[in-house]
Design a protein around this nucleic acid. Structure first.
Lengths: 260, 260
DNA sequence: GACCAGAAGAATGTCGACAATATAACGATT
DNA sequence: AATCGTTATATTGTCGACATTCTTCTGGTC
């Protein structure tokens, strides 16, 4: 019984001090399907507002309707799918009336993240910033070689997700993941297609610099300004230099859609 | 085709200006089951760490295993249930190692909420604060008549949920709902049972006052201090006057578990 | 011509049954 | 005595089929 008690204790409280090995967790079928669905939504394969026929998608995934429906409920909880009784599943749409709310939620999460990072001990802070600077390169590259807006958006969202992931807070990371896919949905729902400002490089450079300086409030305000501009642009309130492409590019890399 | 287009437009962008009536949405069975499950977890009927046998729970709810499993996946996404392949469902446990993370997430959401409220126009701000002061009475009452800690905790959590709900941000409201049920899980997982400080009345009075004064940053710091004490208390780092009861009371009122 | 009512079709909602897997108990072995 | 291997039980994972519901099409009426 002692071994059982130990296992139970581990389940309740996690490894006591330092885990010798990572607890192995085979992903369930529902996990795998949910990842595929999120990818399909994120990449635009399942377009916003389109109906999701269970039998069709299930057969494409090589599973029955049961597991598919279970996975779908996860995305319903995330707000990525909408289920109407009798009418089945539709991909959610993030319309103009929801953009402000969405970015307010992102500011709550990501703003808290940058403040947390800025408040760390300099040594620890720089270690985590190093990981973030890795995400900077793809953004620079996609901007430099004139990639389509979708790829630029991928790099941008990856960086924003990295901000939250760097805090190590799994709950906030999960919430950020959901909000970022919803951001993609908002962009895909937008009549002008995917729109990206050309100065995002400067904004993020400033952001990382302020974190590095330990000035969390300034970093949060930079983020707030950045988001405000994004909202205005999505709502068509701004006329300014931008790069817009309705990217038909498939195959984004979904750094934030990993298995838990 | 015009009517269809109009309906689609409504689905995408929501009602154009001011909706004459609220769009009626019959709750699906999955919705209803999910509410029941959350209530059972919140009230302690389903205890943290306990296994949830599908057949048993399904028959108690009067449904088959299929809909139950679909609902369960929603709670898995929320972090309220854990599913291990082959081993089925267990109620999540929020152990000591997760308390800090949980309260950090709550601070991100609720801190953002109080700052938002404080930044509103005085007229609008006071209107929403009026709704919050309604939630103040139950807290006072439960403290005054020496209720058990569980009832005090209910009133406390209702008030905190009300803070976020008052912003009108549905996304943040949903996230707050999840985090607050997890807070209850943490309390139920705690060895000392439900613990409540006796000075929470003062803290919340101060909080609402600072919001009323438009001082969002101060309100957020009050919240941060309050949460820090909660974390310390749950981790047993503090020895101070408190009221602790392992409340066996069933039937909490779950203001935050409404249907969407 | 627009609107309403009814019927046909298709998809969903739900259930029961079977196969696959994990758990627990038991005995054998070092 | 503790550990390992085996077996039995119970539960989960998956699937196919049926009843129900929504959607769409058609025809009729004002």
């Amino acid at each position: 019984m002692n071994e059982t008690q130990d296992r139970d204790a581990v389940r309740r409280n996690g490894p006591v001090s330092r885990p010798l090995v990572n607890m192995v967790r085979r992903p369930s079928t529902v996990d795998l399907i949910a990842v595929e669905l999120r990818n399909a939504i994120y990449s635009g394969t399942l377009r916003p507002g389109s109906s999701v026929r269970e039998a069709e998608v299930a057969s494409q995934l090589g599973v029955s309707r049961g597991p598919l429906r279970e996975s779908a409920q996860r995305l319903v909880q995330e707000g990525l799918l909408v289920a109407r009784p009798g009418a089945g599943l539709r991909v959610a749409t993030v319309g103009a009336d929801q953009v402000a709310e969405l970015y307010a939620a992102r500011l709550a999460i990501e703003g808290s993240a940058v403040r947390h990072l800025a408040g760390l001990e300099p040594e620890d802070r720089e270690r985590r910033l190093a990981a973030l600077r890795e995400l900077f390169a793809p953004l620079e590259a996609s901007l430099a070689d004139g990639s389509d807006a979708r790829r630029i958006g991928d790099a941008d969202l990856d960086l924003h997700f990295g901000l939250v992931e760097a805090t190590g807070n799994l709950r906030m990371t999960a919430m950020a993941s959901t909000l970022i896919v919803q951001t993609r949905l908002a962009a895909l729902s937008h009549r002008d297609g995917y729109v990206v400002r050309t100065d995002i490089l400067d904004v993020h450079r400033t952001l990382l610099g302020q974190i590095s300086d330990g000035d969390g409030l300034a970093a949060e305000q930079t983020l707030a300004g950045h988001f405000q501009q994004s909202v205005d642009r999505l709502l068509g309130r701004l006329e300014e230099p931008f790069s817009t492409v309705v990217g038909a590019a498939e195959g984004s890399h979904f750094a934030f859609n990993r298995l838990p």
